[in-house]
Design a protein around this nucleic acid. Structure first.
Lengths: 330, 330
DNA sequence: AGTGCATATCTAATCGATTAGATGCGAGAA
DNA sequence: TTCTCGCATCTAATCGATTAGATATGCACT
């Protein structure tokens, strides 16, 4: 027996005013209201448990207070962590987050954008993996601002880290441990940032071995076992993503190959997960929070230039660092 | 120079009809439309790139096509996986998903529910950890259906698995490996399902050692190192969650203690993550997809009774199973 | 008293889609 | 021919909040 939620008109009636005054009070509106009246209105609103209908407000003011977030793959902790930071940044600006998982499908990504636009979102944040659709155009046509995170098409605003620099650091670090042949594990379709990472690696270690697997633990795990069985597993490896690194760790363990002694690994994402693997992963840490913050700022023209932030190397055990006590890892 | 998106009225004008017919055509409306007219309308709509304004529709029809999902902790893969399944189930019913992360705070949970209600969601899915707020009442008062997943207050509809059974299986399995003293790692504030798990363990292994840590890898990792240093680490352990189990694995590795030889571990969540740890975790797998599906069905009165689904044990390496080839793990 | 002006409030149009009730038109029945 | 259905459309009210323009009230000053 739920009663109909009370409306602006109900409050007005109860306070003995017009709906306009009530509106003015609720929003500290465009016009002032006498203190006494304001009190009456607030009291009436409280008594009725009035809550403004944001749908109605949205219809009139053409702004919903909702933003859309399209994720390339929600099951990947890298994107998951990014999503949390984006959500937080949006919330700080009083926006709700509509979320959608594209599952690496350009078609689904497109579909989600369409749905979000139909829902009249105030902005779109698109976390894209390798292939980026022409999603910006659609949003542009609808007059909705859109930004990309991690990867985006040439013209569009993108919040991303400096991937080249990260790879160089990783390679240099492994060299410091005495490795000469440093392989690289890339993705199935490395056009975006992973492509950049691969290119940077290729430039740094020309002629070294390039491996390839899906962006899933299972795939990297299977590949590692396969290489171990064939006896062609490299001794030092940079993986494009944490997911792959974790799969490699799992596969190596299953085949009884010690990390870092038999195989040194550095991963390039640096998700929170990487700190508590066995062994802990050495990574270059993408500044996920900064990227998310910048993306949202970009969305509202708050920031000027999309400055590429650096990904710092965090030495842990998997590269060969820290035989001793590493309790103090972050 | 984006042009104003075209409205129903624009289409009507172009097709030379009233807005009513256009509406009837768009929704296969409550009234029939002559075939010829329908064609004209569809053509006009296509030419103008008309897309219905869901906000306006929502205002009139009092249904937004949006559901709210409140997560206890988005950074926990268990809840993350649940979220993906819920989103998929909602999408299958043509609903968008508004997501919010409560971060284990009852206050934030409450706040999110309020915001979602203000956004006029058609339904609420609440994934709660240990402490559950009186969130159902608020939703009830607003006339919005709400369901809980994983954990919920007594009266409310809850989609959850049979936790007792899972614990019994885990304990029995470790007994099968010859263990007698089987410790349990619980959470900081185990009222909900984790409390049920702890109780079931206590009944099955009275007098065994109870450990306690936060639901984070870092906390379980630290605890494990601490116990290892003190020489009081048990030989068999059931952890309440995968996150904790992964932390334990990490801590054990750091202290050079072999899993499963020195320490056998079984975890009770069974997230996808658990298949690719080093070593792979033996788990009881919560039927996340079924739970999500059931929750959404419950939300719309589709299902009759909230039948508790079973959590099956998946033997992997961490309990002591499979010294040989385990390539076939799921 | 009359005029001017500022302040407080009210009236009503508006956002875009939905839909009940009114209307128009032609075919068939009387 | 006239009346009656039935179908296809149109007209206009409605959802709830916002806000520009109109109106009312009170005070100061000549």
């Amino acid at each position: 027996m739920r009663k109909r939620p009370s409306t602006l008109a109900d409050v007005a009636r109860r306070a003995g005013t017009s709906t306009a005054v009530v509106s003015y009070v609720m929003n500290n509106g465009p016009r002032p209201v006498a203190a006494a009246t304001r009190e009456r209105v607030l009291a009436a609103a409280a008594e009725l448990g009035y809550r403004p209908n944001r749908i109605a407000r949205a219809l009139r003011s053409r702004t919903t207070g909702v933003a859309g977030l399209v994720l390339a793959d929600a099951s990947n902790p890298y994107f998951g962590a990014l999503a949390r930071h984006v959500e937080r940044a949006l919330e700080r600006r009083d926006l709700l987050t509509l979320i959608g998982n594209a599952g690496y499908s350009a078609q689904r990504q497109r579909h989600l954008v369409e749905r979000f636009l139909a829902a009249q979102v105030d902005g779109l944040v698109i976390v894209s993996a390798d292939s980026v659709g022409d999603v910006a155009e659609v949003a542009e046509a609808a007059g909705v601002p859109a930004v990309y995170v991690h990867n985006g098409p040439p013209g569009a605003p993108v919040a991303a880290a400096d991937n080249q620099d990260a790879v160089r650091e990783a390679v240099a670090h492994l060299r410091g441990h005495g490795h000469r042949h440093i392989a690289f594990l890339t993705g199935p379709d490395d056009e975006g940032p992973v492509g950049v990472r691969r290119a940077a690696w290729h430039a740094a270690v020309p002629g070294a071995e390039l491996l390839r697997s899906d962006y899933s633990r299972a795939a990297a795990d299977a590949l590692t076992r396969h290489l171990a069985d064939a006896g062609t597993l490299p001794h030092a490896l940079v993986t494009a993503t944490d997911e792959q690194a974790i799969g490699v760790l799992s596969g190596a363990w299953a085949r009884g190959l010690a990390v870092p002694d038999r195989l040194a690994v550095i991963s390039l994402d640096g998700t929170p997960e990487s700190a508590h693997t066995a062994p802990a992963l050495t990574v270059t840490e993408q500044p996920l929070q900064a990227m998310a913050e910048q993306a949202v700022a970009l969305l509202f023209d708050e920031a000027a230039a999309p400055l590429a932030t650096r990904a710092a190397l965090i030495p842990r055990r998997s590269c060969g660092c820290g035989g001793g006590d590493l309790d103090l890892l972050s």
